[in-house]
Amino acid sequence: MELIEFITQKVNFTEQECQEINEAFHTETYNKGALLIKSGSYSDRIFFIEQGLVRIFYYKEDKDITQFFSDQGTFTASLSSFTDGKPEPYGWEVLEPTTVRVIAYKDLQNLFTRIPMLQQVFLYVCFDLINMFSLKLESIQFQTAEQRYTAMMETYPGILLRVPLGHIASYLGITQQTLSVIRGRR
């Protein structure tokens, strides 16, 4: 999904505003395996994933743990960097050829001044992110592994064809063996 298509689903903008927004975001492409953001680095950029898939992960005791996936048609950003000035604790790995639209936080703030209705789009994006974090926390606290798997399949349809099973298992907080058992029951 393209950036302008996404934002105009949320708010009506004039043609001129769409053009200005489109020009403010530049395009970057990444190959599978590239790091969009390195753990421990700073990033003041907001990404819209037009095509592809990004995995947000961390290391715990030398083990690679998947925290989230950011699929096409979504915004994502290192909140700890541009809001708190802290290094990003997660790595952001591109899992397939990916095209993103990118804007620096300060440039987005300037765009908000010129096109105030754009703030409404980002309010929707923030609500979606809060909901995503809430659902992930709820799933860890209250759902069985099989329920987490079912919820993941609803949130990320087709993910089994796009992501190594080890990443899926770590996202669910289970072993690959448990994931195989769950998949075998279906």
Rank of each mutant, 00 (worst) to 15 (best):
M1H: 03
L3Y: 07
I7E: 05
K10D: 06
E15A: 11
Q16C: 04
E23H: 09
A24M: 05
F25E: 06
H26W: 14
H26L: 08
H26G: 09
T27P: 12
Y30A: 09
L36H: 15
L36Q: 04
S39K: 14
R45F: 07
F48K: 05
F48H: 15
F48Q: 10
G52T: 03
L53H: 12
V54Q: 04
V54G: 02
R55V: 01
K63P: 12
D64W: 09
D64S: 09
F75L: 01
T76A: 11
S78I: 01
S80H: 11
T83P: 13
E88S: 02
P97M: 06
T99K: 14
V102D: 01
I103W: 04
Y105S: 04
Y105E: 00
D107T: 02
D107L: 02
L108A: 02
F112Y: 10
R114G: 13
R114L: 13
M117Q: 15
L118G: 03
Y124A: 11
V125A: 08
C126D: 10
D128S: 09
L129Q: 15
F133M: 07
S134V: 03
E138V: 00
E138R: 03
S139D: 01
S139R: 05
I140A: 10
Q141E: 09
Q143T: 15
T144G: 01
M152C: 13
M153N: 10
L160F: 09
L160H: 08
L165T: 11
I168T: 02
A169R: 00
S170C: 03
S170H: 00
Y171G: 01
L172S: 05
T175C: 05
Q176W: 01
T178G: 02
L179T: 00
I182F: 06
I182K: 13
R183M: 06
R183H: 04
R185H: 04
R186L: 06
